[in-house]
């Protein structure tokens, strides 16, 4: 039990610390790297809670895809962050007002609201199956409709990406690998006899 507590505080501290560094660090690449650190520690927290599936998904999706994509965007786009920060003090009062409103709302939420009375606070999961197994049990049966629909949504996203980016320009020279590979000696080499002192004529 004490080991679990130690790891909890370890992960939680690094998570909060690196989350702070995400917004505090001056270099955007460092920010993204801290973001990845925060994700990994959050995954650790999930493992401590016994939600190993969520932990792995968090690493695969957020660290493997989203954060790396972020990193690429940050490094490839030439965003001048110094210029972005210039309006900081100009917008500060407005930002403080918005922040104040959100803080007040949070206080209200924590202070006054109660959760719905029939909300199941603890889901009854049998002890002998892991939570990954439980997801597998319902994903293709009870929730097959949502699963298939998500697949179609992703298909549309893929078609959309192709439609919007693939362009057959007329005057682009393309490499035709098949015709390159299928060249034989007969089509590639021409033997010409060159007479001394005259050189080749025509399009050699």
């Amino acid at each position: 039990m004490i080991v679990q507590a130690i790891f909890f505080y370890l992960f939680a501290c690094i998570c909060v610390g690196s989350a702070f560094m995400v917004i505090a660090s001056r270099n955007p690449v460092h920010s993204v790297l801290f973001l990845i650190l925060a994700f990994v520690n959050a995954a650790g927290l999930f493992v401590l809670m016994g939600a190993e599936f969520l932990a792995m998904i968090l690493i695969v999706v957020y660290v493997g895809a989203v954060a790396v994509l972020f990193l690429f965007v940050v490094m490839m786009l030439d965003v001048d962050f110094a210029e972005l920060r210039q309006g900081f003090f100009q917008y500060l009062p407005f930002g403080m007002v918005i922040g104040g409103i959100f803080l007040a709302e949070l206080v209200l939420v924590v202070g006054a609201w109660t959760l719905g009375s029939n909300l199941p606070l603890e889901s009854p999961i049998p002890a002998h199956i892991t939570n990954t197994e439980v997801i597998g049990l319902v994903l293709y049966t009870r929730y097959v409709y949502f699963f298939e629909l998500s697949g179609i949504v992703l298909l549309v996203a893929m078609i959309g990406a192709i439609v919007l980016t693939l362009q057959h320009r007329v005057r682009v020279r393309r490499q035709k690998i098949s015709s390159q590979v299928s060249r034989s000696r007969a089509t590639a080499i021409e033997v010409r006899t060159v007479r001394p002192g005259q050189g080749l004529e025509g399009n050699a």
């Binding site: 949502f146 629909l149 179609i152 549309v156 078609i159 959309g160 439609v163 919007l164 362009q167």
Partner: peptide
């Protein structure tokens, strides 16, 4: 959930065809 998935399926295709004349 079905509502949200239907909405996204409808909208995603719409975003693409709205921009289809690039």
């Amino acid at each position: 959930i079905a509502l949200y998935l239907g909405l996204e399926l409808m909208s995603l295709a719409l975003y693409v065809i709205a921009a289809s004349n690039r």
